[in-house]
Amino acid sequence: MSKLQNLLKGIIKENPVLVLVLGTCPTLATTTSVLNALGMGVAATAVLICSNIAISALRKVIPDKVRIPCYIVLIAGFVTIIEMLMHAFVPDLYESLGVFLSLIVVNCIILGRAEMYASKNGVVDSAIDAVGMGIGFTLALFLMASIREILGAGTFLGFAIPWLVDNPILIFGMAPGGFFVFGCLIALVNKISKKKNNKEFGCHNCPSAYLCGKKDENPCATVGEGDDK
């Protein structure tokens, strides 16, 4: 796979949000406004790039048996750094993202890329993979936030849109609107890709799937094919 393909796969073919359906919590929670979504996207991308580089560089040092705790510590460290930087330089965004900034630690996308990609590939490839996945995550969040902010508040990035601003459909900015827009977007992706992409939400993408030792009894194993291992 060429470097360009490696970069592009995260944006379209393996888009972490709309195709792999990872990181659903921040996707739903931070897309009430475009600014929040972009902030979340950039913060998660920064953590993803740092963690992929670090994990890929340390992949021969980290013992296989304790790799997940090691990854989590590394990721949590980077999240703390990003959190402190955002607190210092963009306090408004820090306030509005709130707890979801800390929760980047348990974002499936980051641990998933660490487990599936960075632990098996070189530093440069891992960095490119992280950039692609990060851009894919940010774009998906941006798309969803645009729909929700334009319909739900009648604004885009805070600028009022004529007519819509007087007739906002408030529900799009609230919790039910989040689920609804997300469902419709995934349906749209299914329609466009025309693939048999109707697979249920399962553990095949979940980084903690391997932790469930008893695969046969695992509630998710009936759905997914199990992880890559």
Binding site: F179, G183, A187, N198, K199, E200, F201
Partner: peptide, 9 residues
């Protein structure tokens, strides 16, 4: 297109 995850959401 809605079968599976989308209709669940």
């Amino acid at each position: 297109a809605f079968r599976g995850l989308p209709i669940t959401l």
